[in-house]
Design a protein around this nucleic acid. Structure first.
Lengths: 249, 249
DNA sequence: ACAAAAGTGTTCGGGTTACACCCATGT
DNA sequence: ACATGGGTGTAACCCGAACACTTTTGT
């Protein structure tokens, strides 16, 4: 904390502070495929290219100092999806601050990732009228090779992080339907972890979550085609985790 | 990225951007104890209290845009220790941006942790003449209950993160003497992980690092008091890892 | 001889991997 | 009967946890 003598070091110039934005990597799993929400830019620079949802941090220098950085992330989420951040897991990813990452001016981006249930994802739509948006497949690299700014780098880090997160937590519930079969949950793990699971090995992991009460069986069966019906399950509410947190999980 | 229309949203006001600083949690291990480098503030607010080393990000709005955020962290490290960041591991921790965390103005802090070999740590001294600094024990909570700003929170997160990092990587080499005994390396693990290791279990882990070439035996023996001499070891240079990186390890 | 620290082995439980076949249903 | 997807068991290996005694040296 050394802005003590800012006036001395930075020769009194209007706005010698950087802009601060929150960029969001909003993930969901649709049709066994990891998707990310992108919005098409309608202003330069990078007009017409796809970008992560983003907002500038609101700052006041009078009275209160504006919004917490977490609130800016929440707001960005709401602007991008039209949804409340409740029951959606969101966590800080990394802060990107390379000089020149925005050609217009100095911008520091605090990037977050969010995990959105598919049932909500299909309802998502930016609050800004007419903003073109789309869920892109993360594994088909085509579009995100050319994202605006350094967003491809941010997305890549998010995709890496989510794999680890799903591996060491129960957070898959944030990407699963409320009611699901074992195979459906397996496909969530496979999509987020960028790998295949053996069905027997996956069921052992699944069974552990049943044993410790994370997952409970749900009444009824799921019929698919002319095949044996599958049991259905749901996550126990008490296994849910705070929406926004900073722990290292 | 939406500073497109900043002028519309924030009623044209001088400096409506937040200040951005880099705060460093610089760790070392001295006498089997995890230490953190703190500097006593000589200006308000929190004049006289201990704080993490910090610097404001250098921003220009003409030509180049100033320094990368990583460079600001490096510079903060150099100012705080007088040392180059080479052979010292440094990684981004978290970005803290609560409104009001600095009473003077809106400040966003990008926090990093750094791991410094004890041999260098004892030579460390802020480049700023006469700045009071000290290595504080992290486990004796006394001082850091009253750190400036939210630095206690930052330090706590750093201490949590380092435990995990040492657990899943070879990064202990950044906190070990160049030449060390098994017991000495064990004490590095114990200090950083806030727990005790059984000597036999630790040696098994140690042996794995020997087997995969991370650690190699060093000629000679270490004599301590009237006891059996210990073999000495060193980390193989090729097990070193880039100084500054963003991967999730 | 004794004090001091170095060094050593085994058992158990749990997790991960790899791997191939039978079951229940609809048509 | 057959096609479809649901469901299952075992062996090998690695890892972490718990636990107590012998060895080598200096004095």
């Amino acid at each position: 904390m050394t802005p003590t003598d800012r006036r001395k070091r930075t020769p009194a110039k209007i706005n010698s502070n950087p802009a601060v934005v929150t960029d969001l990597v909003i993930f969901t799993v649709i049709e066994s495929d990891l998707k990310v929400l992108l919005i098409q830019r309608d202003t330069p620079p990078f007009r017409g290219t796809w970008a992560l949802p983003s907002n500038e941090l609101r700052v006041r220098h009078d009275g209160d100092q504006g919004e917490d950085i977490e609130d800016a992330a929440r707001r960005t989420f709401q602007d991008a999806t039209g949804l409340s951040v409740d029951h959606c897991h969101m966590k800080q990813l990394h802060t990107f601050g390379r000089a020149g990452r925005d050609p217009r001016m100095r911008v520091i981006s605090v990037a977050w990732y969010a995990l959105l249930r598919p049932s909500l994802a299909t309802q998502a739509s930016p609050t800004k009228e007419g903003a073109p948006f789309q869920w892109f497949s993360v594994s088909e690299e085509a579009p995100w090779m050319r994202l605006a700014f350094d967003h491809a780098e941010i997305l890549a880090l998010g995709a890496e992080r989510i794999a680890q997160t799903i591996e060491d937590s129960n957070l898959a519930y944030t990407l699963a339907p409320h009611i699901f079969t074992v195979a459906e949950l397996q496909s969530v793990y496979e999509a987020t972890q960028h790998r295949k699971w053996d069905p027997r090995n996956f069921r052992r992991r699944f069974q552990r979550m049943v044993d410790d009460g994370t997952i409970v069986e749900s009444p009824g069966k799921r019929h698919r085609g002319k095949a044996r019906p599958a049991s259905v399950w749901r996550f126990a509410e008490n296994s849910f985790v705070p929406t926004l947190n900073k722990s290292s999980g």
